[in-house]
């Protein structure tokens, strides 16, 4: 048994050390460097300061944080709301048709992220077919710009994250025994009532995963607002990138990243806390 333990240490050590050095320490550095001053060459100065944290009081930040939060929550809600009926539909199809539909949903998921954003930029282009159509049916004027605003950012976020939400919910729905729904209806439940009280609770785990895998990247989104958003639709991610690439103020970028980390981990901690309470409840029942 001693040998087994020793072998295990040897196999586990390289990746453990790698993750500590290139993942855990860098994450801690984010907090540390936020307390450092900036030096005139765009590097990190000596000593410690609280100045960067006071700079976060910049009046433009609260609205950016608020926008990041509501865009994250809305895009997550829309993605989940669409994924539930899609997963229901997919898991009820016969296996041939199901594979075709599943493939159609997975392909955009694997298609390069930039290409998908690019397709939308072309789609919403002032000279694109969609704009011409909107003008033709009278929903838009020649002067309306579809791009570079927060609605464009929101739509593209939903577009790119939707497959992330479908997959976990579908995996949960596929394990569901659909005869339970028929049984509920035989006992007099309406379709919607059966759906809400029988189907939804049994896929709740998939919904939980879907919320996490959409909400977290949405809160950290940077490419989408950068490419299809404008100055009025910036998110925290844009600000971090600007501090790094435009004015090379790494401590400021660190402080913003620490803030983002806080925003991201808050829902994570909350969900695991809720889960624990639910488990306790189930146990006591």
């Amino acid at each position: 048994m001693k040998l087994r333990k020793f072998v295990n240490w040897i196999i586990g050590a390289p990746s453990f050390v790698w993750l500590v050095v290139f993942y855990a320490i860098p994450m801690l550095l984010v907090f540390l460097i936020a307390f450092k001053p900036v030096d005139p060459f765009g590097g990190i100065g000596k000593g410690f300061t609280m100045k960067t944290w006071f700079d976060l009081g910049n009046p433009s930040y609260p609205s950016i944080i608020w926008r990041t939060l509501w865009q994250g929550v809305v895009s997550t809600a829309v993605c989940v709301a669409l994924s539930v009926p899609i997963s229901y539909q997919l898991s009820r199809m016969n296996s041939k048709l199901k594979n075709v539909f599943l493939l159609l949903i997975i392909v955009p998921f694997w298609t390069n992220f930039l290409i998908r954003i690019y397709a939308w930029k072309m789609f919403l282009h002032p000279d694109g077919a969609f704009k011409h159509l909107l003008v033709f049916i009278g929903l838009a004027q020649e002067s309306t710009t579809l791009l570079y605003n927060q609605w464009a950012v929101l739509v593209v976020m939903i577009y790119t994250y939707l497959p992330f939400a479908v997959l976990p919910i579908y995996t949960a729905a596929e394990k569901f025994d659909f005869s339970l729904l028929d049984a509920a209806k035989d006992l007099g439940a309406s379709s919607f009532y059966a759906f809400r009280r029988v189907f939804l609770p049994s896929i709740s785990k998939g919904i939980g995963t879907a919320i996490m895998v959409v909400l977290i990247p949405a809160l950290g989104a940077y490419l989408i607002p950068d490419l299809v958003g404008g100055p009025t639709s910036e998110l925290i991610g844009d600000k971090i990138a600007q501090r790094v690439f435009v004015d090379r103020n790494l401590p400021h970028a660190s402080a913003l990243s620490a803030l983002l980390m806080f925003v991201v981990f808050l829902p994570l901690v909350l969900t695991s806390w809720i889960k624990k309470i639910q488990q306790k409840k189930q146990k006591s029942e």
């Binding site: 993942y23 860098p26 550095l29």
Partner: peptide
């Protein structure tokens, strides 16, 4: 250590590694 990198937004991984290298 293995699991959390999967859920950390990529921008945070990017900046944290940049800070490490710098």
């Amino acid at each position: 250590l293995v699991h959390t990198p999967l859920v950390v937004p990529d921008i945070l991984q990017g900046i944290s590694l940049l800070l490490l290298f710098v």
